[in-house]
Amino acid sequence: MNNVMSWIKDIQFFTYVNIILSSITTTFILSIASFILATIVALLLSFIEVFGPRPLVKAVEWYVKIVRGIPLILALFIFYYGLPRFGFPLPPLYSAIIGITLVDSAYQEQLFKGAIEGVSEKQIEAAYAIGLTKWKAFRHVILPQAFRIAIPGWINEFSIVLKDSSIAYAIGVTEIFTQAVHVAQVIADYLKPLLLVSLIYLCICYPLSYISNRFHRRLIEMGMIGS
């Protein structure tokens, strides 16, 4: 601890902090882009799984099963080292975005499907009882409630993607984790830069988990999910 404190007093400290933080934009671009793309794919897939015809439902189930079995780093390698062989060389950042999107879409699909199925049967019956058609019941009762039910998990999922984006280090994307490692190599000390970068992740994830919990509690209060 003493060691760390003295390092903070060191003028070099701020230079290193600056170097690491200079790449935070990349971390954000990488995690936000992958996350949003994964959300779009996952929404489509979950609608198919809940309402689609049998063969498509099976297809989505297999997609989820297979993709969830792929280690993230493998997905990144496939899109970075694998694609050029088919004549599609991609810059590391793009490969990383596609890789994370692929894997995360499977997780988010499960989240959304769970949220749609989490809407209480009683609510759906009430919707039918007032004369709503299947589509209108979905549009005005199931979807708005599923949307709210999905929010806490969706926020948490972003935290996961944010932290997972550090794996892009392995294919040479210069995001904050990569920068921290570079600094570590220069000053020949891993602990301090890595502690610093953990702190950055924590500073983003902690508020997110706080907000997620607030939403979760609100849902219980509103009776949309069981406590």
Binding site: K122, A126, Y128, V141, Q145, M222
Partner: peptide
């Protein structure tokens, strides 16, 4: 069936108000 249901009121044991 939805046209028929709109002509019949239903009151449930557990109210089933739309929570949102």
């Amino acid at each position: 069936v939805h046209n028929i249901r709109s002509q019949i009121g239903f009151v449930f044991q557990h109210f089933n108000l739309f929570n949102h």
